[in-house]
Computed example of a mutant assay.
Amino acid sequence: MGRLISIASGKGGTGKTTTTANLSIALGKMGYRVCAVDADLTMANLSLVMGIDDASTTIHDVLAGNATIEEAIYATRYKNVHLIPASIDWEHVIRADPRKLPGIIKPLKEEFDFVIIDSPAGLQMDAMNATMSGEEVVLVTNPEISCITDTMKVGIVLKKAGLAVLGFVLNRYGRSDTDIPPDVAEEVMEVPLLAVIPEDPAVREATLEGMPVVEYKPKSDGAKAFMELAERITRIAGFKSRVMR
């Protein structure tokens, strides 16, 4: 049976979608069957990053009761990786019921080794419905104190809500002399540091090309860091949730 892992953060713009895409493809490269889910119902950027921008059926159609979840699953160009895209059409957004997300996403663990859920930032209803579709969560933050503390608060709430917080990713580290060091960030977050993703021009270039960096420039520092994150996730995913039951 597969694992359901939500990618969450306290602020927008931390790199959740980038992390979701690269982690999914890295896991696919390792031979796991993966489904990435765009559960950010208002922003819907994951499909663009993963190269599917013309999907006729999306998670919005499923949430509106107009399609089954199987009809919204697409094979990507990346080995072993599938995607459930979201719509960028506001008309679809207002018809979708985010409360249905956990019910439609959780059964996917019967079909995939990993289901990686790109969730909205924060603790609003749409974010909570998306994040609670998982059983485990990986937090993503940037090395700024306000971002770290906001994401720490999200982690506390999600843990109280019953999710197993696997740890956090410190993304875009090294872009400023005032960046919070990884050891200090880990002390504030009070959960394990899973990976430090460096500030790497290759990541931005890959985004402009509509391709995750682990595929675009697999030898870059950013790509190597995402591969290390995937390897760590395979070692710990499922363990904490089993202990918590």
Rank of each mutant, 00 (worst) to 15 (best):
I7T: 00
I7G: 00
A8I: 12
S9G: 11
G10F: 06
G12M: 09
G12A: 07
T14F: 00
A21S: 14
N22Q: 00
L27F: 00
K29P: 01
G31C: 10
C35D: 02
C35F: 00
A39Q: 00
M43L: 15
N45Y: 02
L48N: 12
V49Q: 12
M50G: 03
A55V: 08
S56W: 11
S56F: 09
I59M: 07
H60E: 07
D61K: 07
T68S: 15
I73H: 04
Y74Q: 13
A86S: 15
W90K: 12
I94N: 00
A96Y: 01
D97E: 08
L108H: 02
L108M: 12
K109Y: 07
E111D: 14
D113W: 15
N129Y: 13
T131K: 01
M132Y: 08
E136W: 09
L139T: 13
N142R: 05
P143V: 08
M152L: 08
V154N: 11
I156D: 12
K159S: 14
A161I: 01
V165M: 02
F168A: 06
V169H: 12
R172L: 09
G174P: 06
G174M: 03
R175W: 08
T178E: 13
D179H: 10
I180S: 06
P182N: 12
A185K: 05
E190T: 03
L193F: 11
L193M: 08
V196Q: 04
P198E: 02
T207H: 13
E209T: 05
E209Q: 10
E209H: 13
V214F: 06
K217E: 14
M227D: 02
A230K: 05
R232A: 01
T234F: 01
R235N: 10
I236T: 15
F239I: 14
R242C: 06
